[in-house]
Design a protein around this nucleic acid. Sequence first.
DNA 1: AATGAATGAGATTTCATTCAT
DNA 2: TATGAATGAAATCTCATTCAT
Lengths: 210, 210, 210, 210
Amino acid sequence: MNALPPGEPKFRRRPDERPAEILAAALDVFSEHGFQATRMEEVARRAGVSKGAVYLYFPTKSELFQAVVQDAIVPNVETLKALVSQAPSFETAIRIGLPGLAERLLEDGRVTGVIKLIIAESRSHPELAELWHGTVIEPALSMMTGLIERAQGRGEVRAGDARYFAFGLMGPMLLTAIWRETFQPVGAQPIEPGLLAEQHLDTVLKGMRP
Amino acid sequence: MNALPPGEPKFRRRPDERPAEILAAALDVFSEHGFQATRMEEVARRAGVSKGAVYLYFPTKSELFQAVVQDAIVPNVETLKALVSQAPSFETAIRIGLPGLAERLLEDGRVTGVIKLIIAESRSHPELAELWHGTVIEPALSMMTGLIERAQGRGEVRAGDARYFAFGLMGPMLLTAIWRETFQPVGAQPIEPGLLAEQHLDTVLKGMRP
Amino acid sequence: MNALPPGEPKFRRRPDERPAEILAAALDVFSEHGFQATRMEEVARRAGVSKGAVYLYFPTKSELFQAVVQDAIVPNVETLKALVSQAPSFETAIRIGLPGLAERLLEDGRVTGVIKLIIAESRSHPELAELWHGTVIEPALSMMTGLIERAQGRGEVRAGDARYFAFGLMGPMLLTAIWRETFQPVGAQPIEPGLLAEQHLDTVLKGMRP
Amino acid sequence: MNALPPGEPKFRRRPDERPAEILAAALDVFSEHGFQATRMEEVARRAGVSKGAVYLYFPTKSELFQAVVQDAIVPNVETLKALVSQAPSFETAIRIGLPGLAERLLEDGRVTGVIKLIIAESRSHPELAELWHGTVIEPALSMMTGLIERAQGRGEVRAGDARYFAFGLMGPMLLTAIWRETFQPVGAQPIEPGLLAEQHLDTVLKGMRP
DNA sequence: AATGAATGAGATTTCATTCAT
DNA sequence: TATGAATGAAATCTCATTCAT
């Protein structure tokens, strides 16, 4: 006689986990479609909530987008700080730090996804490029040029523009990220970030010797 | 024999140029806003024609977009073929070909714009990534790995994955393109493609020696 | 005999007052924004309760709105009945009753607010106009035309349409209400309801003499 | 064999008449429902165009609303100027001008509709009340108080606040407008603006004599 | 009884595309 | 061929109402 419908409840209250769930879903969708082509409804669907629920936590699509990138930056900055804090000799730092970092970051679709997003949306959302540049790129670049210049001072590295040496070291890492996002999905042969990083470092570090 | 009737404007709009004008305008706008955020009306305005006129030449926005990328690929393929046809010794090829190529291509906003577009829209328009990969990337990569492998056979280059060597050479060029499109507009210090290319080649070619 | 346990707050929220608090808050908000633009959340906030609590007392926004107007009508009807019950001579009735009534009602933002609301929402909520007309306007008008007609019968007032005389007497009172709600907020010089009423009655009563 | 469908064209180009048609439809709908409750789709439907067409001429709902009120003010200002320009003796001016004005304006649903709108929306669109006050109300009031004060100077009108005399004259005209919009639709007995105006003027002008 | 997170229908606004001129 | 007014599907965002807690 008890006619209570046994079905699941229409929704559950999960105020603490919701924002993170929505951010994760949003990163997925944004990085698949870009900012404009992303529909809020799809973000909601993938987060398992209603359209309205997204707006409870993020007042506009634009602010959701910024939160996604912010959220992706924070752990990178931590990683970077940890790396800097050690700061041993130049070759050691690079040789130990980079391949692991490359492997860890570039095999994580969330990282490559955000990188692609920032490239794609830098014109319409320059504040993102600015944030990423100021928070991740510029500090990392400074750290590297610093290491390189000190190594040049000690005679461990030959003369040359320290910033261009840094770009030479990092370029293939960026290429890997883009390759993964852009060409692998259409059938290009995958790159193994760790292997590429190692061979490239061997090559470049050797080439940088006096 | 010059039959231009006097009193007529010296230059009249030649209908044959319309498609090219529209493509040029479209490249500008697509590369500023991305595919979705580009409005056909703005393309028309920049091309100096009416909205309707665009549709006389390109039946949909999507086909206009593909035509833009196609159009940007053709001259690159020509450049590439010319480069390949010479095919001298490894070091000479690279050292002579790359810096000039880098300078010519990476300082042309249309090229870096298309590169960015392809990265940005690869998910929603995979056929573009496929086209670009098949027509530009893969041939260029094959040519380079071929050169490298032959050089390895001759003992001019040490052992190692030829494809990763190629990525190591090309990575900073891509980084330059993205730097220009993404970070320079928000105040990052510019890269000089020719200088970076030269220093990088010196370094990598030296590092690749046995 | 005072059994209030010490340490308890002196005033506790008595549940009986909830509906009145909500009605008061709702009148405020409705009269500021109109029916459609009023958000239930704001009513709740101003009443100091949660959104859900409003729905415990008023099942829909529409019924809350009707209750607000109902609630504003009741005391007016009482006032009116009291006035009618005295029903002395025409001039005395008008001269004694009106200025005080005008002052009392028209300086009360709740009254002018409801008047404005009824005007504003009469098309979408005709039942309100009907209620107000049947409960306040029509009885008041009947009372006045009755007084006037009897005064005409006694030769105290000249011939003329009694209803138009009544409108002539009441018009400026309505104007005062609207002036207060509509033009004073944008800087118009205020009207003093009592003074205007008095001067107007002097004028009209004199003009109504035979 | 000619299979051209004989049906009417999907739409017609009428660029010159469109804005006026849309304004007329919008006045209707706004004055029936108020600003918030008006749906752009209904405005479009009544104007016989598509939703999008409305946006070709008025960029937002709010600007459409303001245009509606603007549009309703212009002819009133003209009427007012004409009236002022004559400026004969006080009694003549009032007695000749007002009943005709009352009849003409207050039997025009567009005028009473706009009056109601301004009252209803004065809180959410104070700029409308300001515009109406500055353009219509304040000039008209100044003109009337000027006439009255000059008449007082000549001893034709007894002492008293000229502004309150003006309100006493105009109040019933406003009441008529509101009566028509608010109570007639729910069955109240209509007011004949011309008759009420005439009887009211007889009464008040007599009451204003020294 | 009370809360406020969650829902989802519905509103405004945009813009690719069409078509009368 | 060329124009640009007009269309209408689709997107963002709001908010009355519900319901798990």
